[in-house]
Design a binder for these strands. Structure first.
Lengths: 153, 153
DNA sequence: TTTATATAAGACCAATAAGGTCTCATTTGT
DNA sequence: ACAAATGAGACCTTATTGGTCTTATATAAA
């Protein structure tokens, strides 16, 4: 696994929307500009976020994106996996096609362990938490105090 | 980071050499065949392992590879990083070029944390340990009892 | 109801990295 | 000297990433 550019952008986008608060409609261009994401590329990424119900997209004039859940209930893991799929650090873990011994392999067991560890840690970080610290924004954004807390899952 | 095919092959190779024991000369073809690694590709990988002194290569007729350290002192991390370089899960962690806020970014701090966690876990697994369980071999290999234990680092 | 402003969906393209091969040189045992 | 092995790096092919473009559709406002 690797946090691809698309994944990185998705995190920035959700972080920006989180700062604005759940339910606030924000135009795509504003996000793109503010978070330094190529406009059209963001459109593609947003569709994936919408598919997993993290955001809602409204079309037409004055359209844009709306965060559908509270930042404290959104984990880093969710956003990342919405874009790059379920995290796997190697092929063996997901498919036994590569390694004939797979399924009963000591090396594989280690990879499964570190993968779970990684996922657990990412699952434990909410966007509300991320907002309480300086983040990857290009310009400062005001952060409402009530968007702080731990994720439910 | 992702365990590439090359990294996977390197692990298999060192595991095979570990089973044979430190100091035992094994021909490249034997390893390639036994571990299901493309012969020429193994040559390339072996050079990287030699560069970090994990193995020694002898040329000429009856040449091959020799494990230079005890399996209990070789960690999974070492072998993996010998091939794919120091593990980094995203660009931000390594270079601040991508993310302008880098260095003081909450998201980045999370990635650094999970990366360290991952490296620590891999560093804690020795090849001796891996040998005590069924591994990614295509055919069974006898495992000397004295190659079992924890890695020094 | 027309027009301007947005996004939708997916085809498409360029750049990079992964996976692997090939060639020519060098080394070493016999 | 010769055969059997590896060294080093150029080179090729394929997959993935990162991103754009085009056509269609939706909506607010004039």
């Amino acid at each position: 696994m690797r946090l691809t550019r698309a994944g990185e952008y998705a995190v920035r986008c959700v972080l920006y929307l989180s700062a604005k608060g759940k339910g606030t409609l924000i135009g795509r261009k504003e996000i793109a500009e503010h978070c330094d994401i190529p406009d059209k590329f963001l459109a593609k990424i947003a569709q994936q976020l919408a598919r997993v119900k993290l955001i809602e997209i409204s079309q037409g004039a004055r359209g844009g994106y709306v965060l559908k859940r509270e930042p404290r209930d959104i984990s880093l893991l969710e956003v990342v996996e919405a874009i790059i799929g379920e995290i796997a650090l190697n092929d063996c873990v997901t498919s036994s096609a590569v390694c004939r011994a797979s399924g009963n392999c000591a090396v594989n067991r280690v990879w499964i362990k570190v993968r779970n560890q990684l996922r657990d840690t990412l699952a434990g970080v909410s966007f509300a938490e991320l907002l309480t610290e300086d983040s990857c924004f290009l310009a400062p954004v005001s952060v409402p105090l009530d968007f702080r807390g731990k994720p439910k899952r």
